[in-house]
Write a protein that binds this DNA or RNA. Structure first.
Lengths: 335, 335
DNA sequence: AACGTTTCTGAAAACGATTGCAGAAAGGAC
DNA sequence: GTCCTTTCTGCAATCGTTTTCAGAAACGTT
């Protein structure tokens, strides 16, 4: 059974294909009467335009890619959901891709964009380095980075972004611990040299310590991979170091850390204070509730979508830095 | 700047377009030498085949849709991730769509499939009713339901599925509570008449009670919407009813319930035992750790992907019911 | 009634791939 | 060298749209 095409519609309606096409695309220059008749026949025959043909002729698609970098966290899933909603309600198709590992990220993204003939691309997470500018130019479509760390010096004309100030937010968090008397503060970080979100947060940790005249001790820093399990393990290592507080760069790891602490017979926050990052809903439902730095996930998805739609029309890159919110829960206390 | 196409390649290589096409599609009947030359030129000119043209000519795409029904939970995000990985590594493109609300679900899915010219469709969540069979036939592509409740009597030839036995799993959980001496068991359910996952679990609850000669009391059932916040609220209502245990049909709601219990000065499990459903990672990291019925989320995504790939080749529908695992944590105790 | 405008319409040429078919080139048998 | 296979190759039609361009139809003006 052949599917109906524009030609069939034209024949039945007794008009030319171009007229049908004009109706489909809501172009002017079609008599109201003709338009109505064509629309009715389209309805009757259950006609659905063939997107492949359309895209071929238009030499572009309506596909927007979401390229997810790194571990897929609860954090990302909220962003993706709000992104998809806003894009698809603007008649775009959303193609999803998870990139594993941190290597060749941008090459993989370009491959993805070219192959799928994307007209726009959203990066979720990861980092953008100065020496990757060239790739960005190669990719001649609007690109927006969400929750990505942008290295200094990258040409802001080449892309858009929706980010938070990781350094500032983390600095604020660690300072809070310091102000509350903590001096032996452990850190649960992530990534090995290539995870810049982790790096920015780490720098903030080091600088905050230094500003309080606390010597940085690398034994107090342990690495994870954003999972609860890794937070648990990292915390176990820190337990030997007699820390009084620990800063985990993700709520998931903070939760793992809390579990490790309790499992070893210690109490949060009496024995060890815990500070997370992300402000996930679930942190608020822990007992005790997690002190954390909250990122506006849904809002971030919305903004990324809005901006992408705008630059798809106007081509003027935008950069916005969203505010984080320091939420004091019950996992931190004065000593 | 025009993008290079198959014709350019042919011209440079000094062969016909059909030869290039044959090389691209790895067809036989091309001399090894010619093939090598063509491949080299493809490489040199950075040629990427135009998918729209391909799809048009082939009269089908390589797009597979993931249609997510209902609230996007942590649960779904794990399934989606493993699904995407397996599909894209088999050269399919994954299109994501979230359907809001429970109305017109299947119509929306058909629209989605036709418009994007999908060659396969994965439903995530929701339910499939007998009277929707017709729609299924209309949709002439392989369809697989994952974590969907299938109404009795639906023709199994029309689709594939990867599910768990919600009734059995919930029955086992509630029975455990009963065997531990609980008689006033509250339930935190969800959905209003249209959420069949919730319904199946509810039926199990009622039947288990009845099998232990406990009269069903509708005041002990409260509704939520799979969020932690809704679990919290639902639990508050149940607190007046002096329940000794509560069964929440999702871990997220169970976590909300635990918070409500603690916030009201009671303890889990001493005062109230809590049983969840899903077996999310985070439940294991709660203190006390959540007793729950574990679903194999990643495995479910894998299986759904595998099966879809198979039926894309062979057209023989498959139905598998995955095993759940009852995980006893620290939130339940004997009374 | 002839003409110029304006409004609307359809034929036909793309877009970039795949594929059936005819036929060229190469190899083998005599 | 001729003829028959076998192996390779290229032409041209086709998929279902969009869009240009020429021209038909409708209308008002004189």
């Amino acid at each position: 059974m052949k599917t109906v095409n524009i030609k069939d519609i034209a024949k039945v309606a007794g008009v030319g294909v171009s007229t049908v096409s004009r109706v489909l695309n809501n172009q002017p220059d079609v008599k109201e009467e003709t338009k109505k008749r064509v629309l009715q026949i389209i309805e009757e025959l259950n006609y659905v335009p063939n997107n492949s043909a359309r895209n071929l002729k238009r030499t572009k698609t309506n596909h927007i890619g979401i390229f997810v970098i790194g571990d897929f966290s609860t954090f990302f899933s909220e962003v993706i959901e709000s992104l998809e909603k806003i894009l698809s309600s603007n008649r775009y198709s959303v193609m999803l891709h998870f990139h594993q590992g941190m290597k060749n990220t941008i090459e993989a993204a370009i491959q993805f964009a070219l192959e799928k003939k994307l007209v726009g691309l959203v990066f979720l997470g990861g980092h953008l380095k100065k020496n990757e500018e060239g790739y960005l130019k190669q990719l001649k479509i609007p690109v927006i980075f969400a929750s990505t760390v942008i290295e200094e010096g990258v040409d802001f004309e080449l892309f858009s972004s929706v980010t938070i100030d990781n350094y500032k937010a983390a600095y604020e968090g660690v300072t809070y611990l310091l102000e509350n008397g903590h001096r032996r503060i452990g850190m649960i970080s992530a990534g090995y040299g290539d995870d810049s979100v982790a790096e920015a947060r780490f720098m903030a940790y080091r600088d905050a310590l230094s500003d309080f005249k606390v010597t940085y001790d690398e034994k107090l820093v342990s690495g994870g991979n954003y999972t609860m399990a890794s937070g648990y393990k990292a915390m176990e290592e820190l337990l030997d170091e007699k820390v009084t507080a620990v800063f985990a760069i993700a709520d998931t790891m903070a939760i793992g850390a809390m579990k490790a602490i309790t499992d070893h017979g210690l109490k949060v926050p009496e024995d060890i204070s815990v500070l997370g990052f992300d402000g996930l809903e679930l942190g608020k439902y822990m007992t005790p509730s997690l002190t954390s730095i909250e990122q506006p996930t849904r809002y971030m998805g919305d903004q990324a979508g809005q901006i992408l739609l705008e630059i798809l029309r106007e081509e003027v890159p935008q950069h916005i830095v969203l505010e984080t919110k320091f939420v004091i829960g019950q996992t931190t206390q004065k000593i």
